[in-house]
């Protein structure tokens, strides 16, 4: 397990480097340059390019960038906040985005899970239908629509919550964006949990457990829920990533000083360094989430942990399978396990 994690981390680092290189190359093809204002003369533009080293060949720029990056230096901003080190820009903004994003995942996953379980246990009742409606709405309506609806109802009409982010009242002013962002997660998780739970409840091993006299909460929690959770964690990971993209618009609506709104501004103003730095951070977060999910599998499902140690990680061919194939493998194992119970 340790070796496995170590290897995954190494691969992650290389992936990040590759992403940075691709980003760097792609920015060269981006229309316009950071200094393209109608009021700038050619001489001034040349002067600005020289000042920031943008007149150098691409490989020199990239080499210098990676060297700086290794020291934790993302360079300075060209437009959004002229000459400000990007680390300083991100330092205060990243925690806010992560807090709101984390809140959204937490609320969405928990509420979705509860709703899904409730729906599954009350299969074919009004509650079940309600769950389906919520799922369909939550998945199909974009988060900014919820954001605007919430802002209008709770903020503008009822005046319960502040309409704009306010650092002095961080929690109440994070609630609306958090809820707006969580609805997609909530809906997906609810639907998934419901289906998964129904499948598990129908299985023979549940029947076996019940006939052994287990019932009520222990039956649901220990036997049904545990088996339901594995695939849910799998879908939760991509949902977290969806959340990041959703936050771009939601942050704008609630005037949240997070990295989502910063990225939008950076792209609009061709602020190269900020774009690269934020994409780097987004990629790093994505990779970190995937890594966490992999590790979580082992904790939740002892079969995977056991299977892995008995298979021996070393026997797997070089070039670790990507996330998708791993997912398929886990899924296959689970099915195998289910089949075992059934036969």
């Amino acid at each position: 397990m340790k070796r496995y994690i170590l290897r995954r981390i190494l691969i992650s680092v290389f992936t990040l480097l590759a992403i940075t290189l691709v980003l760097f190359a792609m920015l060269q093809f981006m229309p316009g340059s950071p200094f393209n204002d109608e009021k700038l003369s050619d001489d001034q533009r040349a002067q600005l390019n020289a000042k920031y080293g943008l007149d150098q060949p691409l490989y020199v720029q990239f080499g210098r960038y990676v060297a700086n990056l290794a020291r934790g230096d993302f360079g300075v901003s060209y437009n959004i906040s002229k000459n400000t080190p990007i680390r300083q820009l991100i330092q205060t903004r990243l925690p806010i985005s992560i807090k709101i994003g984390g809140m959204a995942v937490g609320m969405g996953a928990l509420a979705g899970l509860l709703l899904g379980i409730a729906a599954a246990l009350n299969h074919n009742t009004i509650l079940d239908t309600l769950c389906t409606i919520v799922s369909v709405l939550g998945v199909s309506v974009p988060s900014y629509v919820f954001a605007l609806a919430l802002s209008y109802s709770l903020g503008f009409r009822l005046k319960w919550l502040p309409m704009l982010y306010n650092a002095k009242m961080a929690l109440p002013s994070s609630l609306m964006p958090g809820i707006a962002l969580s609805l997609f997660t909530l809906a997906s998780i609810a639907r998934f949990t419901r289906n998964e739970m129904l499948e598990v409840m129908d299985s023979d091993y549940m029947l076996l457990a019940e006939s052994k006299g287990i019932s009520g909460a222990p039956l649901i929690l220990r036997h049904a829920l545990r088996n339901t959770l594995i695939p849910i964690i799998t879908v939760l990971a991509p949902l977290v990533v969806d959340l990041m993209t959703g936050s771009l618009v939601v942050e704008k609506i609630f005037a949240i000083p997070g990295i989502g709104s910063l990225l939008v501004t950076a792209i609009q103003s061709n602020d190269y360094n900020v774009i690269i730095a934020l994409s780097f951070i987004y990629s790093a977060m994505y990779i970190a989430i995937m890594l966490t999910v992999d590790i979580l599998y082992g904790i939740i499902d002892p079969r995977i942990r056991l299977a892995r140690s008995s298979d021996g990680e070393d026997s797997t061919p070089p070039g670790r399978p990507g996330f998708a194939s791993r997912w398929a493998r886990v899924w296959g194992k689970k099915q195998k396990a289910v089949n075992m119970y059934e036969s």
Partner: peptide, 16 residues
């Protein structure tokens, strides 16, 4: 019993 448990969960959601 299962239904009762489900109802409990529902109450949890409302409280949340």
């Amino acid at each position: 019993r299962i239904k009762r448990f489900g109802t409990g969960i529902l109450v949890c959601i409302f409280v949340l």
